[in-house]
């Protein structure tokens, strides 16, 4: 059987509002057959904190601290936890396919392993002993390097996730709410034991090389051809509309 063709998007750094709105705009176009299945890699400028769909924004985020540092705060379409998206320290991906894409388990929990497989294979190409850890994490020697989140909406599947390149736990925990200062220090120290990064594993960060490895990993695991493409004008227009309705809208971000 010939391989299915996907579009590869390298959209560079964008604001949190553009990034989340573009993920949704692409998903809607994929579902409507206006765009092929799509794998996108992107970054965040400025740095941002995203929270899961079900999280309380005031419960999780020190909004004052974020404002003081010009860090955007946004509610995702996907569940899961709060994430600090550092401008320099992270590679982010998203993939959008129709709900009936061949070979995707109907149960969300069973599909993470498959869809995270591209990252695992990509990291292994770099010589990093990555493994998928249910529910939705990727670990290296027991330490987390990637978190992933999925939604199934509009007749499609959107999964996005992060790959840590550099860790800045002090900054991260200054932006997230923690019970006490004592616990903040413990959490910062705990990151050393629980989290790793491309820099820790390889000694350096070459984002372009890492992204190339991930692209190859996804192509292998999903048995697809990835053709570099562009965001369509329609997708950009929808991104702008969705941004106003949802991601840049306080009603959306403060709904829980």
């Amino acid at each position: 059987m010939s391989k299915l063709t996907w579009r590869l998007l390298l959209t560079g750094d964008k604001s949190a509002f553009d990034n989340m709105a573009l993920d949704e705009a692409v998903l809607r176009h994929v579902v409507d057959d206006q765009s092929p299945p799509t794998l996108r890699f992107y970054g965040w400028e400025p740095s941002a904190v995203s929270i899961g769909y079900f999280q309380g924004i005031e419960q999780e985020v020190d909004l004052e601290a974020c404002r003081a540092r010009d860090i955007d705060v946004i509610r995702r379409l996907t569940g899961g936890g709060a994430v600090f998206h550092d401008h320099t320290g992270e590679i982010t991906y998203s993939l959008a396919i129709k709900a009936d894409y061949p070979g995707i388990p109907a149960k969300v929990v069973e599909s993470y392993g498959l869809l995270c497989g591209g990252l695992v294979a990509g990291l292994q190409r770099l010589g990093i002993a990555a493994e998928f850890k249910p529910i939705n994490d990727i670990l290296v020697h027991g330490k987390k390097i990637s978190g992933n989140a999925q939604t199934r909406r509009f007749g499609g599947i959107l999964q996005h996730g992060t790959l840590l390149c550099d860790v800045n736990p002090r900054l991260m925990f200054s932006l997230l709410k923690v019970p006490t200062e004592k616990i903040r220090d413990k959490l910062i120290q705990g990151v050393e034991e629980r989290v790793t990064s491309i820099r820790r594993e390889l000694g350096e960060v070459d984002k372009a090389a890492v992204t190339d490895a991930l692209i190859a990993g996804f192509a292998d695991v999903l048995d697809i051809r990835l053709i570099p493409g562009d965001v369509s004008a329609d997708e950009l227009a929808l991104m702008e509309r969705i941004k106003g309705e949802r991601y840049a809208n306080p009603t959306w971000n403060h709904q829980r």
Partner: peptide
């Protein structure tokens, strides 16, 4: 609230 997942959200 929390960091769980629910489909549909």
């Amino acid at each position: 609230t929390g960091d769980f997942f629910m489909h549909p959200e």
